[in-house]
Design a binder for these strands. Sequence first.
DNA 1: TACTCGCTGGAAAGCGCTTTCCAAATTTCC
DNA 2: GGAAATTTGGAAAGCGCTTTCCAGCGAGTA
Lengths: 376, 376
Amino acid sequence: MDEQRSRAAEVPAGRVRPVTGAVTLKQVAAEAEVSLATASRVLHRSGGREVRGALAERVQAAAERLGYVSNPHAQALARARSSTVGLIVHDVTDPYFAAIATGAMHAAHADGVMVMMAATFRDPELEIDYLGRLRAQGARGALLAGSGSTDPAVSGRLADAITAFTREGGRVTAIGARPDAHIDAVVPDNTDGARQARAHLEALGHRRIGVVSGPGTLLTVRQRLEGLGDGLRTVEADFTREGGYEAAAKLLAAHPDGGLTALIALNDLMAAGALAAARDAGRRVPEDLSVVGFDDLPFAADLSPALTTVRLPLRQMGERAMALLLTGSDGASPAAGPSAASAAEPGAAASRRTVDFPVELVVRASTAEAAGARTT
Amino acid sequence: MDEQRSRAAEVPAGRVRPVTGAVTLKQVAAEAEVSLATASRVLHRSGGREVRGALAERVQAAAERLGYVSNPHAQALARARSSTVGLIVHDVTDPYFAAIATGAMHAAHADGVMVMMAATFRDPELEIDYLGRLRAQGARGALLAGSGSTDPAVSGRLADAITAFTREGGRVTAIGARPDAHIDAVVPDNTDGARQARAHLEALGHRRIGVVSGPGTLLTVRQRLEGLGDGLRTVEADFTREGGYEAAAKLLAAHPDGGLTALIALNDLMAAGALAAARDAGRRVPEDLSVVGFDDLPFAADLSPALTTVRLPLRQMGERAMALLLTGSDGASPAAGPSAASAAEPGAAASRRTVDFPVELVVRASTAEAAGARTT
DNA sequence: TACTCGCTGGAAAGCGCTTTCCAAATTTCC
DNA sequence: GGAAATTTGGAAAGCGCTTTCCAGCGAGTA
């Protein structure tokens, strides 16, 4: 019943390749009349050893002729490491993550690596679960976009998952400020961005400024607040559009009339909400109230008025993070020319690398001179 | 440095598992004192044969105790089929695809399947390339979101790639109308949506309506145009915001004053552009000009005025498409209750299944009664 | 010329899991 | 009660590739 052993036979015509497809390395080796080992060495220059000219070319040609494509699973199994990387985001729908993902995929593609993307829908358990799966399949690494939970219980287990993964050779790098993780990270200069936002408003004569903040537990938020400095009226929201609306409405109600001449929202989603709140409260933007956002998501320019906001080079950050993950060593400086700060503690097995990206304020129509500032 | 490892302390001490990680089936089998085969049969009820109570429990327990996680690569290799599916989109950044991706990932997760997401950046070559890779790694299937190229040369090769993939057992399903492919598809009722849009405008008294169309080669566009019917002034654009702006500007310039009282853009991105163009042309929306979009992307409600648009259940479509891909057979009716039309040609090896999703017009602030319609 | 190296190509042992084939253990039927 | 039919667990042969060892060989050294 089992006599498909015709392999060895150099069947002249009608050589039917098994329906189930793919050309294997073995076939290539046979075609090139070399051993399996040699074919492997030629086609996947990973074993440290090269094969010289003549033979190599024969193999290449054979592979070409047969249309050989290596089987990633077999490779992963034999090497105990696959060539996929995971990209874990909160929500694919959020333009913030979409921009990062685009950059990451771009970089991954350049390296012939496939990206497994997973959305956690903000469920930290899922984040841990995915990390486990990536580990189980020997993924090359994982990109963690978005701040992790700071819930002590969960963050401990997350840290365990990361540790387990890295101990087995996986690389984990974060995009955005992560509370405590001892992993590589690519972060925007939140503090400076916030500083620029405030400076911009103050230059326009604004003195009474309200802040629609994000979850106080997030390191990202802390950094932005730090950059903002003191003396502002802050209300905490949850980084969503609705949250931004409510917080802004509250702020405006608490400071009627000219009590507040400007609002800074710690992300664009909330800024959009704030804009709506201002409209509903009868404040004209920017005449009565200036509004500044954070992130510069694509839709920011389409809001009305177009939003003045702090631009984060999200796409580049995604690219860089992936490059960091894949190359292991740091490549050239990215386009934006961030300053790379390596904290190379001698004691640590692997030093943690952090790449800072500069940010820039984009001034659009939502900010203008403060009403009473003409006198300055 | 990090010692939140308290949980793991219940280990009897001593027994050091190999650093390189993963528990293998073999270990589980040993622990349960059964053969490898039995362990496999218990843990992965795929072989058609079950194992009865006592033994089965012993294996389960052992697996539990050891924290066994099966190695997807080994499994894929042995089964000649992996448990990942590919999701190929044009652009992760486009909210349209993001919504679809969210749905697809949700459904995939429910099935324990991982999603490899790839963005083609609108390069059909990349689409073909990815399909090849998915094939090479025995992916369970691929979801193609967005219309394929209609360039004959490329589309032929794409069709070949699809055929090659399906011949090896991969399932390919499309989301959105695809020109010619003989594959399963999940499509929105474009025609009806367009009809609703026009009916809405006509009910408001609009008679002179302009259309900002998308690339005429796309089947999706053809369907929408068909639903719109005749007697409209149409200008073709490229589905981008900028294209929409230009097309709308042109349309408005060609029909000054009340020459046109309404505009229908064939997607929301272009509608956003049209809104901007109207503003720049000094037309008030909706007083002087009503504008209708298509898709109902998240930002539609945030435009000003909020956009009246045809809502596509993108997320559900993504979910359904993934379900179709994974289950092979059709599950229950989706939430939205689309009418499933199976074309079960007796002669075909596999019949092509198409799931239609109904769409609905969402009326917001960008449409109002036509200026001169009061007389009706 | 004899002998040790440094290279290069091939044989073969896995990587972790699935699945076919077998044989032993039951069960069923006359 | 014995033979045939049916289960059920295990041994083992791969899946396609990597990589360690080994043997063969021309080159360098004494």
